[in-house]
Design a protein around this nucleic acid. Structure first.
Length: 310
DNA sequence: AAGACGAAAGTGGTTGA
DNA sequence: TCAACAACTTTCGTCTT
């Protein structure tokens, strides 16, 4: 076992180590987990503790282990075992029962992790995500499992949520649509679990920056580098003009790219841009209109048109 | 004929009482 | 918990190239 000395995110050395939970927390930027420290020891208490959340009275242990689509949930399995215990003398069995649960749960977590990490790897390689992101997602997921956050959610959706969060933290954002396509989980489900997991784990995520999307969108549209940098420029002005808050970052990125393409004579249709950005033409139009209004880009556009005419 | 534009109605998520 | 609200989408008609 080795220990990290510095935060992998911000380089800070102000780390807080919580051995019981197997976490190393960076005081400066949030959360870093050293997965080699994973310790399953007393996890079952966690489940006892927060289990009273108004769910069905039948005890469900750990994650619903839905392997593919079939509901081979862990709950059923434990239920059967629990029936067996009812046959014996209660007092004598109590100790063994707890031991058994503890054992079951820890192996359940291990099994869950194995499956989940395989799935995580699959989705991650499908999206061609950097190794760092994949590892961060794995850490997030591990944490989520340990805290029993996977209960009531499908393993896959939590994996996707963790991946999404990891992407955001590393400023290589993928859209929810892309995650959704890669994992075949509904967009809103990913969003939900993403919000839940990050809130519960106290992971802070900066609002995603539209500029982070530009490079990827531009390359799928086969735009020149200078067009791309123009788009980033426009984006900065837009942020200064407070056009970006509250809007979807992809829409803004798409509009900036659209305008930049127009100005550099690399015309793309609104539909083309809309498709790669995962928004509709209407959204691009709205953002586009705002950009023209507030940033007075129409002058530059006209210049471009004149050039064309000559 | 295809793209751009805009209006109107609908959807899902956030917020504030 | 529910209703109001903003952002975004869908759909459709009209105008421009």
């Amino acid at each position: 076992m080795y220990f990290v000395k510095k935060c992998s995110e911000c380089g800070s050395e102000s780390l807080f180590i919580n051995r019981e939970k197997g976490e190393i927390i960076c005081r400066d930027c949030g959360l870093v987990v050293e997965d080699k420290m994973v310790e399953f020891g007393q996890e079952w208490r966690e489940f006892e503790g927060d289990g009273g959340g108004g769910e069905e009275s039948r005890r469900r242990t750990g994650a619903p282990m839905t392997y593919t689509q079939f509901d081979q949930g862990l709950g059923t399995e434990v239920g059967q075992k629990a029936d067996l215990f009812q046959l014996g003398a209660k007092d004598r069995n109590k100790f063994f029962r707890l031991r058994k649960w503890q054992y079951r749960i820890s192996t359940a977590i291990e099994r869950n992790l194995k499956l989940a990490l395989a799935e995580l790897k699959r989705v991650s390689s499908y999206l061609k995500l950097p190794k760092m992101v994949e590892e961060e997602a794995a850490m997030i997921y591990t944490q989520a499992v340990q805290r029993g956050l996977v209960r009531g959610r499908s393993m896959e959706s939590v994996v996707s949520g963790a991946l999404y969060a990891a992407c955001r933290r590393h400023e290589v954002p993928r859209t929810l649509d892309e995650l959704s396509e890669a994992s075949s989980i509904e967009k809103k489900e990913i969003g939900r679990t993403y919000r839940f997991v990050t809130r519960e784990l106290g992971i802070t995520i900066l609002p995603s920056n539209p500029a982070d999307y530009i490079a990827r969108f531009a390359s799928s549209l086969k735009l020149q580098p200078d067009t791309q940098s123009k788009a980033v420029e426009i984006l900065e002005e837009a942020q200064h003009a407070e056009l970006t808050s509250g809007r979807g970052p992809t829409g803004i990125a798409a509009a900036a790219l659209y305008v930049a393409a127009l100005m550099h004579g690399e015309k793309r249709t609104q539909r083309e841009v809309a498709d790669v950005a995962g928004v509709t033409e209407v959204t691009i139009r709205n953002r586009y209109k705002e950009l023209l209004d507030k940033l007075k880009l129409d002058k530059e556009l006209k210049k471009q048109k004149k050039k064309k005419g000559r």
